[in-house]
Design a protein around this nucleic acid. Structure first.
Lengths: 342, 342
DNA sequence: CTGAAAGCGCTTACAG
DNA sequence: CTGAAAGCGCTTACAG
């Protein structure tokens, strides 16, 4: 391990003062004599003194580190949210510890445990929600560690959260497809236990019902496309007696794979078949045709979540904390993949 | 802040034993009586005891946390490397603290400082290298904090590193273009101070010279495409008396933007103009035509770097540490954008 | 303006 | 097998 670092005690000895004085000088405590302070500071930098945050936090009983839990960092959405979080928290003097669950609830549990042991100041989490198990998050609540959910959530926990209005986003995309003349729209979903996908499904179904459009059970693909490939879905589509004319996908990833599979078998996009995705991934604008999708204001979600956490710190001190929910307005980004009327 | 957590002392009091005994019991020290241990463990879990890692590390003089510094996490390459790092380090009982510099040397310096203060066990870093300033990394070296560079580097520091053989990757791509019949190839580069881009430039130039192909100074775009758009480059290309027939780009991102700009003005890719990128970004396979590029084995780079760090821990203990460099073999991934001969 | 002392929550060498 | 004591590196209430 690293060489022994210089300590406050070392500096004190060399300077011929007490540790108390050194500690105060380094903190710019105005009570210390100017000359003494300067002498101590010079000595500290000469000795290459690095404050020991471990000891500092232990003594102060709190840390300036916030944990951020995400399913994975290699999704543009999450890295963008994290960008927003870091911006706000760094300015407020907090460090951010990023942990990814990599789609494993087990790892998510380990990550929460690790944050708990680090005596982290607070946690910002986008829970996996692959299972309804939330004992690990309950543990944080029980320890009164400030916790904010973003993007995804365990909806009934007494925790503040900033969510995308998935229901509304889903409505926007579906209405857009209908407006473009689609009548027979397929649904590419995700696991229903996941609150997000549940809401997107509901938005889709409601709009379809309002427009008295039939939804064929066979054309609801309600799981991740990891399990059913774009090619397979395309094949099923091509076998239909009445050819479907559009698809609403709950992710951009699925939408693109379906689009490419359909192109391969000669379907013209968007002329014969319109497609919309969800979440405005970075590649959704560079593929061709570019993908119509729902933007979730990821950066803003990050800054908002971070601000809520800082606010919660204050409110808890005053014993006035009450959880609140904020819904962000999703935005329809119209691109080429859905524009049948030009 | 969080409610006061239960401590070893609290458990000891309730159990009617000393803190020493509790500490030993929780560590499964075999010297402790089985019944006592069980009683203590039951009590600990009943009190919802969470070990305080801060205190633990302070006492032990080391932490089980490793810092990972990257320019940004929203590049597939880096998130993939991080995936590899986490896999190896988590298995070895280490936590990973991810920090991003967001293209700011200033933030990189702050991040290193923060790791230093956390008394981190070691650091894995992909330095920005926008400037030649490496004082912050020198500080880590001086403190004998194990440090590994990956992907990018300050080449002359006494630090172990695992690098992509950028020179060779660049050669592969250039040779491929020549093999496909390109004679007048343009170069889309990045800032020359960056060791990576420097090497890619050298590889390109050497191969061109070996094949006695002329490189027009006007067709070397040696900076990021952020500053000169795909459209601008396309415009310059179209103005040439002898039309260039290929481009080697040091990033996929630039390659794609140029490709789209050229398509917009009617150039047929790859028939009239072949393009290769670098680093096999996730979207390079889904765009059309799909992009020929150089894969850098990002996951392997991560696992290797992590293993080197673990090894360095051991070597330092035995006072046998000597820095070493490992170069990974880049791989040419041939796709549609460059295939002029079919 | 400065210092001695206590304590944050742990671990461990030493003694019994 | 168990405990008292010291100490990791800090900060701060108290005293002067």
């Amino acid at each position: 391990m690293a060489r022994k670092h210089a300590t406050i005690h070392d500096i004190a000895k060399k300077a011929g003062v007490s540790s108390s004085t050194v500690s105060r000088a380094l903190q710019d405590n105005p009570v210390i004599n100017d000359k003494t302070r300067e002498r101590i500071k010079a000595l500290a930098s000469k000795l290459n003194y690095q404050p020991n945050v471990l000891a500092h936090n232990l003594r102060k009983g709190r840390s300036k580190m916030v944990g951020v839990l995400v399913p994975r960092i290699d999704h543009h959405f999450f890295s963008s949210v994290i960008g927003g979080i870091e911006k706000v928290l760094n300015e407020a003097g907090y460090n951010v510890l990023i942990l990814q669950a990599l789609d494993s609830v087990e790892k998510e549990v380990i990550n929460v445990q690790s944050l708990l042991e680090q005596r982290i100041a607070g946690v910002l989490a986008s829970p996996l929600a692959l299972s309804t198990d939330n004992k690990h998050y309950q543990k944080l609540v029980r320890n009164e560690t400030p916790l904010i959910f973003f993007d995804n959530t365990h909806i009934n926990m007494p925790v503040s959260m900033v969510l995308n209005d998935d229901y509304k986003g889903s409505r926007l995309a579906t209405e857009h497809l209908i407006e473009q003349g689609c009548k027979r729209i397929i649904f590419l979903g995700g696991p229903r236990e996941n609150y997000i996908y549940k809401r997107r499904f509901e938005g889709f179904m409601d709009v379809m019902a309002e427009h008295k459009l039939k939804v064929d059970e066979d054309l609801i693909f309600n799981r991740r496309l990891d399990f059913i490939s774009g090619n397979e879905v395309a094949e099923i589509i091509m076998k239909q007696k009445v050819m479907p004319d559009g698809a609403f996908s709950v992710t951009d990833h699925q939408a693109i794979h379906l689009m490419q599979a359909l192109k391969r078998v000669g379907v013209k996009i968007p002329k014969q078949f319109a497609i919309t995705g969800f979440s405005n991934a970075d590649y959704s604008s560079i593929i061709e045709p570019s993908l119509t999708t729902i933007d979730q204001h990821s950066l803003e979600m990050g800054t908002l979540a971070a601000k809520m956490l800082l606010e919660e710190f204050e409110l808890r001190k005053a014993n006035q904390f009450i959880p609140k929910k904020i819904y962000l307005n999703p935005e329809l980004v119209i691109r080429q993949s859905s524009l049948r009327k030009k």
